[in-house]
Design a protein around this nucleic acid. Structure first.
Length: 474
RNA sequence: CGGGGUGUAGCGCAGUUGGAAGCGCGCCGCGUUUGGGACGCGGAGGUCGGCGGUUCAAGUCCGCCCACCCCGACCA
């Protein structure tokens, strides 16, 4: 049954990814070009992501709200860089109820403008600040080249929008949310990331500074996995968001925005997946455990199912699936759940019942172990924790091994073919553009954690005060 | 938008000089199976992407259109 297998990651990473998304039933192509259906298994994963993030947002004082899908075209035009950046990607509604509209409506590509408009109405005094709102929604960007989860015409995400009395406070918020994303990525998804400041050419359209978490995929390409923008007073001025301070002086607020999307599902797939399929981190997996009962005859069946039910009850604290399908063999189920990335498989067969044990098979490592049925919950809990930690360690190791410090530009050109380059950079846009042209590697950003000192630009040799990461990116 | 490719059963594909629409997987039924992707027998399932043309006859030849995929430019 060759078609049941995936292409190997080494032979065709892109095809491996596409087929895995379809076969694991995370998503499917929808009728409109570039759009996707997130299937129940994929959505369950996304729900766990949203829950982990949402609790962090709430813990840092944010509240959720909802804003409209439609935005008047004129709103987009109020911030010059913003409209320039997003115009090519807009979906626009010109007809409503059969009538040509007075003013075209943009299907939101992001909500800074409409939220800015409302903030102008709601904010009058320093007592109204800060405003810390997050929204869970979907947005539309007419992308030219799409890929399931990584870049789709419509995508699901959260966008946080905050307004502050001072620039310092807004900058601190920007940084705080970047750290929230990094914490989520590493501790929930086992995805190691580098926190960076984006270069001028890579930053958000209309912002002052953009920051992101960058993750290394299994083919060493970089993925921008979450962003946090310091918008300064740009949107405050465009939408006249002002407040009276203690001294009765009219001031502009400083705003931020930050987002993390269904793209992150793609990151989890590409960071952890192997030739067998998905490998999901226990903290986010829709099913942490799958139980596969094994039996030959009716007598065994009764005994095994009885034991299965007992084990299931003792594992009641976990997200768990019992695969009691009669029409497929155990071997089929093993492969099936490995494709779907369930972190831990519990096998219960006649031998196990006889021995008073269960068989455990970890998704992150080969091999099986046995553990007494008595006290299985403690062993399972410890094993899931180990898997979670092991996945992060392995991904960190991979990132470290494939991040290089080339001595000169010739070596740089070599290493970025299959890895990241962490190098001194002169901070000139021109140099950045030429590097992109010559190597296809883009500036992923300036790591916040700098080694210090100074050097010379990897390309032009001019004095450089900062190091940047260059890599081919998704 | 430029370059390349593909549209035939749910999926993957074959279909010769134009002459009766097929194969594998999946699906349904029955039986035997079940510790790493089981097997036998019997079945269901088709506007051959669309429109037009050539022809006694078109999945096949011609024209136009549409959609999707891959590679680039744009991007979370």
């Amino acid at each position: 049954m060759p078609e049941e297998r995936l292409p190997s990651r080494s032979e065709n990473f892109s095809e491996w990814y596409n087929q895995l998304v379809l076969k694991a039933e995370l998503a499917d192509y929808a009728p409109v070009r570039g759009t996707m259906v997130v299937r129940p298994y994929g959505w369950a994963l996304w729900e766990n992501i949203t829950a982990a993030l949402d609790s962090r947002f709430k813990a840092t004082g944010h509240v959720n709200a909802a804003f409209p899908l439609f935005i008047p075209m004129s709103f987009l035009q109020k911030e010059k860089d913003h409209v320039e950046g997003f115009s090519p990607q807009l979906a626009v509604v010109t007809i409503g109820g059969g009538e040509e509209l007075e003013e075209p409506l943009v299907v939101r590509p992001t909500s800074e403008t409409i939220i800015g408009h409302m903030y102008a109405k709601w904010i009058e005094s320093y007592r109204d600040l800060p405003v810390l709102i997050n929204v869970w929604n979907s947005v539309v960007r007419w992308e030219l080249r799409t890929k399931l989860f990584l870049r789709t015409t419509e995508f699901y995400w959260q966008e946080g929008h905050t307004a502050h009395a001072t620039a310092e406070e807004a900058k601190a918020e920007t940084r705080q949310m970047l750290e929230v994303y990094a914490d989520f990525a590493e501790n929930e998804a086992a995805v190691p990331v580098v926190m960076v400041r984006k270069s001028e050419s890579e930053k958000f359209a209309g912002g002052v500074n953009s920051y992101s978490i960058e993750a290394m995929m299994g083919d060493t390409r970089a993925l921008q996995a979450g962003t946090s923008h310091y918008l300064g007073e740009n949107f405050a001025k465009a939408f006249s968001i002002r407040y009276l301070d203690r001294d009765n002086t009219l001031q502009y607020v400083s705003t931020t925005s930050w987002g993390l999307s269904t793209r992150f599902v793609g990151a989890i797939i590409m960071v952890h997946g192997d030739d067998q399929g998905l490998v999901l981190p226990p903290r986010l997996a829709p099913f942490q455990i799958v139980i596969v009962p094994i039996h030959k005859n009716e007598e065994q069946r009764r005994a095994v199912l009885e034991q299965t039910e007992a084990i299931r009850q003792s594992l009641g604290d976990f997200r768990l699936k019992v695969d009691d399908r009669e029409e497929v063999t155990p071997g089929f189920k093993f492969n099936d759940w490995e494709m779907r990335g369930v972190p831990l498989r519990v096998e219960i067969g006649p031998k196990d019942v006889e021995q008073g044990q269960v068989t455990l098979a970890r998704r992150d490592e080969k091999g099986r172990t046995h553990t007494p049925a008595e006290g299985v919950a403690e062993v399972v809990r410890a094993t899931l924790d180990e898997i979670q930690a092991n996945m992060l360690t392995k991904a960190r190791e991979f990132m470290r091994e494939n991040t290089h410090d080339p001595a000169d530009y010739a070596e740089f050109q070599e290493v970025v073919k299959a890895g990241w380059a962490d190098v001194w950079w002169c901070a000139e846009a021109d140099c950045e553009a030429k590097i992109k042209q010559e190597t296809k590697a883009t500036n992923r950003g300036i790591p916040l954690d700098q080694t210090g000192g100074e050097g010379v630009c990897i390309r032009c040799g001019d004095p450089a005060r900062e190091r940047a990461i260059f890599a081919r990116a998704y």
